[in-house]
Structures are given as C-alpha cells and as structure tokens.
Design a protein around this nucleic acid. Structure first.
Lengths: 107, 107
DNA sequence: TATAAATACCTTGCAATGTATAATACCTTG
DNA sequence: CAAGGTATTATACATTGCAAGGTATTTATA
C-alpha cells in the first residue's frame, strides 16, 4: 500500500476509533491493521503527539494478559479535532476525485 | 488544508493531468491549484522525481509569454503507474471511509 | 532606455510523519 | 527459570510538501 497516502489519515483513524471508546495503544494497532497496514512504531509516536497536543489524556490499567495497558481518552479538544479532520478529509477526497474523473474546473 | 492528506496524492494528480495531455510545470501548478493548494516548490521536485523514476520524459518549447516551457510527457511506465496509483487511491479511500462510518470489520 | 510585472523554471533547508529495529517490561506456562 | 505472547518506548532513517530565495525570458509602462 502506498505509504504516503497514510500520512495524516492515520491520525484521523486513531481519533475516530477513540471517539467511540477509550482504547490502549496495542489495541489501536490491531484495529487499524484490519484495514490499513501499520506497525507499532507508527502508532505509539502518533499517540504521543496526540497527547502532547492535548487531544488525549492517558491512564494505566492492569491486564490479565500481560503488561499494563495505557488507555487513551479523547479530550474535548480531541473530539473537536476529530470532527474537523473528518470534514477536511471528506472535502479533500471530493476534490481529488474531481481530478480523477477528469472534471478540472475552468478548463 | 491539511498538508499530510496531500502526501502521495499530488503525484497522482500530476500523473492524471499528464495522462490527458502533455503539460509544462507551471501549467501543472496552476491546474492543480484550482482544486488543491500547492506551490511551485512542491511540483518541480516532484516532476524531477517522476523523471528520475522513468515515469515521464521532457522536451522544451518556446513560449511567446515568457521563459521557454519544459513539457512533461508520460512514458508507458508512467501510464501504468497512473492507473495503479489511481486504483490504490480508490481502495484506500474506501478503507478509510469504512472507518469513518464506524464499520470496522470484526468488531 | 530603464523599470516593473508576469511567466517559467529551479534549489535549499526545514518540518511532519511513517518505518524498521531494537530494547524494556510484564505475565503465563511448562 | 526459560520461552513466548502482550504492551510500551526509543532511535535512526526516508519520503515528501513548503517557504524562501534565485535565475531567465518576455511584455508593458514610465
């Protein structure tokens, strides 16, 4: 899969999944991997960015299956960001598709 | 507009426009800019990459309106690439949209 | 003639972000 | 206690878009 397509979209995917419920990093990797190939080395730095930017907060919880899990929870800013990014994405896709269909305006 | 969304997509846009007819760099900047904000500093390096990778060939033509124009022409490899990238893009969009609609499989 | 503006091309350094790889740590099972 | 799955983190790297700046040509303006 084209690596470049993913840039910026993974953030949207992560925010979207977190908008439904709190999840831990490893879980996000697995969920996203079902549709888009992705590795751990991608998600964890992304989650740290989201936290640094104030879009999520984190808390630890024990797990019966291994190491403790760090859960990520959207902040209000994060929820707002999720909506904005989603809208931007839909507009962007429309514009690109208008190219593919040969319909460049004013030509 | 989100910069990251553009990654890789601009290449597809350029290839798509070139699939219709040969164009010069400055023209591509203007055409793409009608839909997606883009600067010359993005297109010229991109076109050089396309040439280095064998997707386009170039030739010069005089212009009455300014400096000579460097036209870009798709090679056979370039045409193939355009199709592939287009298909990859459409598949990718579908996958992302399946996230946005909340329909992550196997959940 | 000189100056400005538009056209057209190119280069450099930077920022953002995905990847590969490895290290660390926890827990369960044999 | 060693092995392997679970889970997080860190580092070095590659790609690509952007801003800023530069060059050259033509035409219009002063």
């Amino acid at each position: 899969m084209n690596i470049q397509f993913k840039k910026g979209v993974l953030e949207l995917c992560a925010l979207t999944l977190l908008a439904k419920k709190n999840r831990y990093g490893y879980e996000l990797v697995n969920e996203i991997s079902k549709n888009i190939s992705i590795s751990e080395g991608t998600i964890y730095p992304l989650l740290r960015r989201l936290k640094n930017d104030g879009y999520v907060t984190t808390y630890l919880e024990e797990s019966k299956e291994g190491a403790p899990r760090k859960y990520y929870q959207l902040t209000e800013t994060g929820k707002k960001m999720e909506k904005e990014l989603r809208e931007e994405w839909l507009i962007f896709v429309k514009k690109v598709n208008s190219f593919l269909k040969g319909g460049v305006k004013n030509e």
